[in-house]
Design a binder for these strands. Structure first.
Lengths: 201, 201
DNA sequence: TTTTTGACTGTAGAAATAAAAAAGTCAGAA
DNA sequence: TTCTGACTTTTTTATTTCTACAGTCAAAAA
């Protein structure tokens, strides 16, 4: 059974490589299989369908994300420092996995199955919980004034994601945002983040 | 010539009525003409093409918007009160003219001609200037700390528009946002607005 | 001269259809 | 238990046809 899990991981990693370059919809099960030098039915032996594979991919990516976030949190001592670092982490993940359209609703119909939508909402909730925890720490430390930590974390994340969503909407309609757009997003997120935290004091 | 301007206004108002219900793309020049009991070439006598008419419509709507904003500003004395009232005004306009997709980039290809895009950017800049003016007042009053008023106004408006953009992206994919979504947007905008202003003190 | 119109044209987008590609299955081999 | 070649079914894409709309014009009305 441990061998099976290993194979599953291998397939997920192979899928991610393709997804990063071509997106989910433009990657076929055959391509993933060929990359790994196995047949398509082998893939279907480990994953009942493509959606399940994508689900596995999303789980993997977010597990990496949360691991990184938690590791980074430990090394920071002020809430400003902490959230500033988080902006950077989110930005890196956003850039790396942009083709998977993991941020926000599905622009094209990449992830529109019920299962994927649900998984994505779970991750969003987990992210909100994580940020709420960080805010609660800051409240307990007296760094910021007492507020509903979860509600505030959700608003904070919405404001951050809103910036991204807005910039992409206005920006060039290429399939990939330009270097300059990316920089603008990052800067605005940092600025907004700073003002937001200050507004919580 | 004053008669001509009157006719133009009448056409614009007729066009707005149709646009509000069916959107720009699903409204034909013939329908607008029929509503006004004139022929299509009459419309083309006053407007060289449909884009020009849409441009006229946009000018009218934003002129109403800015008029209302300026009137409202006069009756408020704190920056919190002022921006809170502005959130409400923007929300009303957003709701009323939703079908024109005036907020953010063109979701479907409603306004994609160069001229319309330019007009829209002009309005956005005007709005930023207006909000910058309000912020500058607050700075001069000592209500908030000194900052680059224009840059801050732009960030503020982006954060507000970002909330809208994000909620619409996640929400139901009907052609019109639900009552509940609208309420959520408004609430989040108010909350974010309050924290933002507090963060500027 | 200014404004309006009926009758027209070319084009852009919708609808329909055909072709291609990809998801998913299965009997059987390793 | 894990894997495969050969297959079927569904989805996507490309192509064509058709329709409805934007925009024009010569001429009439004001």
């Amino acid at each position: 059974m441990v061998e099976t899990d290993k194979k599953r991981e291998l397939i997920i990693e192979g899928a991610i490589k393709r997804f990063i370059h071509y997106g989910i919809n433009k990657t076929t099960m055959n391509e993933i299989a060929d990359d790994l030098s196995v047949s398509k039915p082998s893939l279907y032996y480990y994953f009942p369908d493509k959606s399940s594979l994508v689900l596995g991919v999303i789980d993997k990516i977010f597990s990496d994300y949360f691991e990184l976030m938690e590791k980074d949190q430990a090394s920071k001592n002020s809430i400003e420092e902490c959230l500033g670092a988080f902006v950077e982490i989110r930005h890196r993940f956003f850039q790396k996995y942009y083709m998977l359209h993991l941020s926000g609703g599905s622009p094209d119909a990449s992830l529109n199955s019920d299962g994927l939508r649900a998984a994505f909402l779970t991750m969003k909730a987990k992210n909100a919980d994580f940020h709420a925890k960080v805010l609660q720490c800051a409240i307990d430390n007296g760094e910021i004034a007492p507020v509903d930590a979860l509600k505030t974390a959700e608003l904070y994340l919405d404001s951050q994601a809103g910036i991204t969503s807005l910039c992409l909407l206005h920006g060039n309609k290429e399939l990939f945002p330009s270097k300059k757009e990316m920089k603008t997003i990052l800067e605005k997120q940092h600025q907004l983040s700073k003002i937001f935290i200050k507004g919580l004091k």
